[in-house]
Amino acid sequence: MRNLTMHVTGAALCALSTCALVPATALAQPAPPAAAASGDEEGRGDNARATQLYREGNEAFKQKRWSDAELLYLKAWALVRTFDIAANLGEVQIQLNKVRSAATFLAFALRTAPPSTKPEQIARIRHFLDHAKAQVGTLRVRVKNAADAEMLVDGERVLEDAVKHELYVDPGEHTLAIRRAGYEDQVMRVVAAAGVTETVMPELKPKAVNAPEARGPGGKGPGAAAPEAASTPGMGAAKTKMPAAGARVQEPRSWVPVIALGAASAVGLGVGIGLTLASNGASAEADAQLDAILKVRTHCLNPPTAAPERCAELRRTVSRLDTLGNGARVAYATAGALVIAAVTYAMWPRAKSIATGRVRVAPTLSVQGGSLVVQATW
């Protein structure tokens, strides 16, 4: 008779007689929860609740209700973290095609399995872990001079246990941020490929510390004793509040593009106003020239006029008027577009990585019209 493919919980979670999914090959494991072993009432309550959730998860597993089983195992995991819960949860997430999370749980199960675990159970965990790792990228980050540095992948804090071993990420480009008190933050781009393990060994740069000038007693003259807060590391110093696990960390927004776009908009508006004033002057000049032609009782239409030079000058003035008017309209439209771009950038949700930008503006005029060329990069 073929047994259902399921790991068995440890003695801390259930007895073999009550929750054996594979009774013929099951092997009970030592109880890992320290709180329950020490007699703590709250710990025993969590352990009992985790036992019930684990059993319900096993029933959902047998019925192939993968989503229900995942939810129940996750609730049990939140109360008691044992290798068998992690192993079952990893298998369920394989069924749900959540391979990156599955790899994390299966790796935990493989690392924390007790010596009494049966070889076939270890082989099964390793099989599913290999299956998951073939579809995700694996990162091993070893900071040379700060082994306890905090790490964030794409703005999400990585759990300390995973930092010490392997990080599993989806294939593609990711942002890896490393930070530790007393060192400058380091941000790098890593490209992960499915089934490939990438080892990264960065070295953090210590922050420059300016030593205070020694003064005499009372703060006057040489030889003064250093303040207690300065002589005792960690005393009186503000503690850096670290984000909770899984929290998204927003990088600071760069306002350079907004400033550049606003400046370019102001330039465009100034150009438009200047061209408008010039266009108004040309319009007044054309009106005066037309009045002068009409006063001599002639016109500028075919057949040939009696005032050819005045008509030619009027045509040049009208052409200049059209050019200036078109240029003013282009400048106003460009200034408006730049304002919209600046506001859109300022209001847009912040991305995971921001780069500074540059904007170049160059007005151009010709007899056919005017334009404002804008080049922006960020």
Score class of each variant (00 low, 15 high):
residue 3 N to W: 13
residue 6 M to I: 15
residue 6 M to F: 13
residue 11 A to Q: 07
residue 13 L to D: 00
residue 16 L to I: 05
residue 25 T to P: 00
residue 29 Q to M: 11
residue 33 P to C: 03
residue 36 A to M: 02
residue 40 D to C: 03
residue 43 G to N: 09
residue 43 G to R: 11
residue 46 D to G: 02
residue 46 D to M: 11
residue 47 N to M: 10
residue 51 T to F: 09
residue 52 Q to N: 01
residue 58 N to G: 15
residue 60 A to G: 05
residue 62 K to S: 13
residue 67 S to R: 03
residue 75 K to Y: 04
residue 77 W to R: 00
residue 79 L to T: 05
residue 80 V to R: 00
residue 80 V to C: 00
residue 81 R to M: 07
residue 83 F to E: 10
residue 85 I to Q: 00
residue 93 Q to F: 02
residue 98 K to Y: 05
residue 98 K to L: 12
residue 103 A to N: 02
residue 107 A to M: 06
residue 108 F to A: 13
residue 112 T to Y: 05
residue 113 A to P: 03
residue 124 R to Y: 03
residue 125 I to L: 05
residue 126 R to T: 13
residue 126 R to E: 15
residue 127 H to G: 06
residue 127 H to F: 12
residue 132 A to V: 07
residue 133 K to Y: 01
residue 134 A to H: 09
residue 140 R to A: 12
residue 141 V to A: 14
residue 143 V to L: 04
residue 144 K to Y: 07
residue 145 N to F: 11
residue 149 A to H: 03
residue 153 V to P: 06
residue 155 G to E: 05
residue 157 R to F: 10
residue 159 L to M: 09
residue 162 A to V: 05
residue 163 V to I: 14
residue 163 V to T: 12
residue 165 H to P: 01
residue 171 P to T: 02
residue 174 H to P: 01
residue 179 R to G: 08
residue 180 R to A: 14
residue 180 R to N: 05
residue 186 Q to L: 15
residue 189 R to W: 04
residue 198 E to H: 04
residue 198 E to V: 06
residue 200 V to P: 13
residue 201 M to A: 07
residue 201 M to E: 15
residue 203 E to K: 15
residue 203 E to D: 12
residue 205 K to C: 03
residue 208 A to S: 05
residue 209 V to E: 10
residue 211 A to C: 03
residue 211 A to V: 14
residue 213 E to K: 05
residue 213 E to W: 01
residue 214 A to M: 10
residue 215 R to L: 11
residue 216 G to S: 02
residue 217 P to G: 08
residue 218 G to T: 00
residue 222 P to K: 01
residue 222 P to M: 01
residue 223 G to V: 12
residue 224 A to N: 12
residue 229 A to S: 13
residue 231 S to Q: 11
residue 236 G to I: 12
residue 248 R to V: 14
residue 249 V to H: 04
residue 251 E to R: 15
residue 256 V to D: 13
residue 259 I to E: 15
residue 261 L to A: 09
residue 271 V to T: 07
residue 271 V to E: 11
residue 273 I to R: 09
residue 274 G to E: 05
residue 275 L to C: 05
residue 277 L to D: 05
residue 282 A to W: 07
residue 284 A to I: 08
residue 286 A to V: 07
residue 286 A to Q: 06
residue 286 A to L: 07
residue 287 D to I: 13
residue 288 A to K: 13
residue 288 A to H: 10
residue 292 A to E: 13
residue 294 L to V: 08
residue 299 H to R: 09
residue 302 N to K: 14
residue 303 P to A: 04
residue 316 R to Y: 13
residue 317 T to F: 07
residue 321 L to V: 06
residue 324 L to V: 11
residue 330 V to P: 00
residue 333 A to Y: 01
residue 337 A to E: 11
residue 341 A to D: 14
residue 346 A to L: 13
residue 347 M to V: 13
residue 353 S to T: 08
residue 354 I to Q: 02
residue 356 T to Y: 02
residue 356 T to W: 03
residue 356 T to L: 09
residue 360 R to G: 01
residue 361 V to F: 10
residue 364 T to L: 04
residue 365 L to N: 07
residue 370 G to D: 15
residue 372 L to E: 02
residue 375 Q to G: 08
residue 375 Q to S: 14
residue 377 T to H: 05
